Computed example of a mutant assay.
Amino acid sequence: MTPHLQHPLYFVLGEHDDLFQKGGFFSSANPIKLKVPLSFFDSDQISFTYPDSMPSFNIPWMERGKPYLKPFHSQVFTKDEITEVVQTYGVPGDRWKVDEAWRYERFIEAQIWDVRPIEKFLQT
C-alpha cells in the first residue's frame, strides 16, 4: 500500500448509529454521515480493522482482554481481506449488546488513505 495521506481519515464500514446517539463517541461533535460505496476505492486507498483500531490492537496486550481475543485482532486488512473476514465472522452489528465475548466488536473501522475517491463521489 502506498498511502497518499500521512494520516488516514477514519470511517465506519456499514451502519453504526450508536456513535451518533446521546453519549456516543460523536454525540458532542457535529458529525455527518457520508456513505461512499467501496467500489470508489482501489485496494491501496483503504484499509480496515475489525473492530475499530484501538481495541483491535489493545486487546491482545491487555491481561483482562484475553477472554475477548479473536483471530482478527491486531491486523490491518485490505479491501479483499475484509470481505473474507466478514464472510467468516459476520458484521459486528448488535451482538456486543447481548454476548459478552463480543463486547469490543461494535463496528469495522475503515482507514481512508486517499481523499480522491471521496472527492469523486461528492462530484457525482
Rank of each mutant, 00 (worst) to 15 (best):
M1K: 14
M1V: 05
T2H: 13
T2D: 07
P3V: 03
P3W: 03
L5E: 01
L5G: 12
L5I: 07
L5F: 12
Q6I: 11
H7Q: 13
P8L: 06
L9V: 15
L9P: 02
F11K: 03
F11I: 02
L13K: 10
G14H: 08
G14T: 04
E15M: 06
H16Y: 15
H16K: 13
D17N: 12
D17F: 13
L19K: 12
L19C: 09
F20T: 07
K22P: 08
G23T: 06
G24K: 11
F25W: 14
F25T: 04
F26L: 15
S27D: 08
S27K: 10
S28C: 03
A29W: 04
A29G: 03
N30R: 13
P31G: 07
P31E: 00
I32G: 03
K33R: 15
K35P: 01
K35F: 13
V36Y: 04
V36N: 03
P37C: 08
L38G: 15
S39M: 02
F40V: 00
F40H: 14
F41D: 01
D42V: 00
S43E: 14
S43H: 13
D44W: 11
I46T: 02
I46N: 03
I46M: 06
I46F: 09
S47G: 03
S47H: 04
T49A: 11
Y50L: 10
Y50P: 03
D52I: 01
M54L: 12
F57H: 15
N58Y: 11
G65F: 12
K66I: 11
P71L: 09
F72K: 09
F72H: 15
H73S: 06
S74V: 01
Q75L: 14
Q75I: 05
V76C: 12
F77P: 06
F77D: 00
F77A: 05
T83N: 11
V85G: 07
V86W: 04
Q87W: 02
T88Q: 15
G90F: 10
P92I: 02
P92A: 05
P92C: 05
G93E: 00
G93K: 05
D94P: 02
D94L: 11
D94S: 13
R95M: 09
W96C: 06
K97Q: 15
K97C: 06
V98M: 03
V98S: 14
E100W: 04
A101H: 08
W102Q: 10
R103S: 10
E105K: 07
R106D: 00
I108P: 10
I108K: 09
I108W: 06
I108G: 06
E109L: 10
E109T: 05
I112D: 00
D114R: 10
V115K: 13
R116F: 11
R116C: 05
P117C: 09
P117Q: 03
I118E: 00
E119V: 15
E119Y: 11
E119W: 04
K120L: 12
F121L: 05
L122R: 13
Q123N: 14
Q123K: 15
Q123A: 15
T124V: 10
